[in-house]
């Protein structure tokens, strides 16, 4: 898991879910759902972004909050995927 990965994820979240408002607090352990940053279509946008940007395959079973609900979790998920 690299800082570069986190930075890329953060930039995607800010651009797509916060519409560029980088003044919004966005710690790496902030829940995207509980803070209403992401909805059901947003998750599909996020998955699509991860598949393209990091060249990974996201299975239906992977689409769970445990993998995708914070920037930290997404970064961890990507490194696990890239390691397999």
């Amino acid at each position: 898991m690299t800082d570069e990965t986190r930075t890329a994820i953060r930039a995607f979240v800010v651009e797509n879910f916060l519409f560029g408002d980088d003044s919004h607090p966005l710690p790496a352990d902030l829940s995207l759902i509980d803070n209403d940053l992401i909805d059901s279509t947003g998750i599909l946008e996020l998955v699509s972004f991860l598949e393209e940007r990091f060249a990974i395959q996201v299975a239906d079973a992977d689409i769970v909050p445990a993998n995708l609900d914070t920037i930290d979790r997404i970064a961890g998920f990507i490194s696990r995927k890239q390691a397999t």
């Binding site: 759902i33 509980d34 059901s40 998750i43 599909l44 079973a61 689409i63 769970v64 909050p65 445990a66």
Partner: peptide, 16 residues
């Protein structure tokens, strides 16, 4: 009629 929901896991549905 909401396609975004079809692909969601029970965990996400529970949270939404």
């Amino acid at each position: 009629y909401l396609p975004g929901l079809k692909q969601q896991s029970p965990d996400y549905l529970a949270r939404f």
